[in-house]
Structure formats: structure tokens, C-alpha cells
Design a protein around this nucleic acid. Sequence first.
DNA 1: TTACTATATGACTATACGCGCATATATGGA
DNA 2: TCCATATATGCGCGTATAGTCATATAGTAA
Lengths: 113, 113
Amino acid sequence: MPPKSKRASLPPQALDLIAARFKVLSEPMRLRLLIALEAGEKNVSDLVAATGATQANVSRHLQTLTDAGILSRRKEGLNVFYTIADPSIFDLCEHVCGSLQKRLAQQAKAFGG
Amino acid sequence: MPPKSKRASLPPQALDLIAARFKVLSEPMRLRLLIALEAGEKNVSDLVAATGATQANVSRHLQTLTDAGILSRRKEGLNVFYTIADPSIFDLCEHVCGSLQKRLAQQAKAFGG
DNA sequence: TTACTATATGACTATACGCGCATATATGGA
DNA sequence: TCCATATATGCGCGTATAGTCATATAGTAA
């Protein structure tokens, strides 16, 4: 998103793209896959083991993340290895987490914690 | 999200919260409302005019954003005014936009643009 | 070739969600 | 009181999507 001065005139198309990006990150299982991949390249079987999900389900989510440009694929024999292609998403996640922590802390205080 | 060193041990519950946050931001209409509100407090009628959406639809999205702690409500007579309660979301949006621009530029170059 | 492994995908179900319509709930004025 | 205005909400529809199961595809080895 452009800086504030230009934001109000964003074409609807651009907002759709930004929203789509957020949507890709809005599934816990996909976040799990990303975190598992932060330590480095892994193949599908590794990710199935790391997440406890079905192989089919893992494959689908990996496809979604790859289509979004967040992951990249590398085929090697029978295996397919996935890597983080856009590390900036972790900045995003940390940002969100900070915001959530602040809010939860406020709520806790309001409750008398 | 915690820094990389602690990220791998995040409880599933935390990931659900983060994913939920992203989901709130994954609707173009909600982004439109946020951008409209960045200029300052507005009531529902203003936002209906600004977005061209139905009053019912605007009300629903405002509720979603308020429940997420992103907006805050202030009632004044017949009107209800909404404000950005968590300005940090704009940092998020800019981050996403930068990432998208980089990727689209690469694709354009790969296409011979 | 056949058998085996790793990954992807078609079909299906269940659920969630955005939207519109109508209506309910305030609040203020005559 | 009665009416108008501003906002919220119950209901239904259509669509999107996560998940599972079974199967297809691709690569390896014998």
C-alpha cells in the first residue's frame, strides 16, 4: 500500500490484491507451514510430519502459498522441496503479534489482571 | 509473532489469533473502510457514501473491524462515529503493498515488459 | 515391464462468509 | 404520541474454501 498521501486514491484492483495477500495468510495451517519452513527448505513429507496434517491437505496449502509467491518449489527426484521465497511475511506476522499482545494486555488489565 | 528464535514453539492458539487477524484484513471492502477512516472519524452514513456499499453491509463490516479491535465506536445522538483504534494496520498494508510491487515488477520483467 | 514411493489432484462434504432484503432498535423532533 | 432518521440485525441465498478420500501422476528401483 502506498504511503498515506496516496492511499485514498488506490484503484479497487489494488485493494483486491492486498486483500488476497492477507487471505492467504489467514489460515492457521498455512502459518504453521511457514513457520516450519523458516528453519529451511523442507519436502512435503517433512511438512506432513511437522504439522500432523494430511498429505493431501499439506499439498493444497503449499500450492496456495506458492501461487501467492510466498513459497518456491524445487523438484529433486521423487521429492519436492519448498522454501520461503518472500521472507518479508515474517515481518508481517511479528507486527500482527505485537499488535495482538498490546490489545490482549489491555483487555487483561481491564479485567483486573 | 515472537522473534524467530521462539516462533517454532508457538501454541496453536496463538496461530489461530494471528490468522484471525489476517482474515479480518482479507476483505477489500473492509480495507476500503479503513482507508476512508484514515482521514479521520466518520459516521456510518459517510462511510456508505464513501464506499458505495449498502448500509447493512457497511454496518456488518464495521462490526467485524470493531470486534477485532481495529476500530472504535462513539455514539452521538443518532449517529455512530467510527475511528481507527489500531493505526498499526497501515504499516501492515504498506508492507504487503511493497512486497506485491516487488513481485509484480519481477513478473513484468520476466514477461518482457 | 512391474512394483514402490512421493506428490498432486478430482470429487465430495461441511462450513463459513459476503451480500441483499426486510425489519428491529434507538434517538430526536413536531 | 407519532413520525422521521441513523444504525443494527435476523434471515436466506450463493459462493468460496478447508478438509478427507480415493486416485492420478511422476520418478526410482528391480
